[in-house]
Design a protein around this nucleic acid. Sequence first.
DNA 1: TCCATAGTTCTAGAATAATAGAATAGATGG
DNA 2: CCATCTATTCTATTATTCTAGAACTATGGA
Lengths: 115, 115
Amino acid sequence: MESKTAVAALAALAHESRLAGYRLLVQAGPDGLSVGDLQASTGIPPATLTHHLHALRRAGLIADTRDGRSIICRVDYAQMNALLAFLTENCCGDASACAPRTVCKPDRPTRRNRP
Amino acid sequence: MESKTAVAALAALAHESRLAGYRLLVQAGPDGLSVGDLQASTGIPPATLTHHLHALRRAGLIADTRDGRSIICRVDYAQMNALLAFLTENCCGDASACAPRTVCKPDRPTRRNRP
DNA sequence: TCCATAGTTCTAGAATAATAGAATAGATGG
DNA sequence: CCATCTATTCTATTATTCTAGAACTATGGA
């Protein structure tokens, strides 16, 4: 991962609302959540939520697909792992002693929720 | 870890200069680096570097101790691990399947560099 | 076609963060 | 105790991000 990508990802996460939304998506797993679900969970006004989701998208942390009237957001787990790996890269001068390479390898989305 | 602590830590890392400095410290391990070392590596003017280091300190990501005229900065590995754990907490709805609890357990600082 | 639902874009004022020069403080050696 | 080295604080300017109302677009059902 490039430094600029990591900065963008960290900046995207460095906000109470966005971090909360991202964590909900991480916990939701590969099926993701709709924008409406996120709005219901967080109580953020639609325009503000869109603004925040856009920041997460630009950073490559989440991706979304339309499902009828809803838009389903999902975490990009590869990007999540890459970010964690970047932070801990060569930790203590010896990569093998510290951080693992992969944190999460989620299953495919269920058929119901696949794009 | 509390959400506000995580946001503060992420915000502190969400900057090219600070991220670079933090990663240098992560790789330096428990012995840390002096402010002067960091300045030499990054080329950032002193006042600006202090400003950035202060952000990392406030966020609890690094701590420092004076050693003669120098100030030695070290990563707080517990905080680093807590942040990574917070991001991946209950990942995919099942903590045990995904993220590990601890990433790095560094040795104590060498005697030479201990406070 | 008409309506309700789900999200986005536009906009602009308010708040926060970044940058770095100059002055300052703290430690050590001569 | 003075010069020097190391780093911080003060300050002001510039730049970026946040917030959310209002208007708009897209989808699907009646």
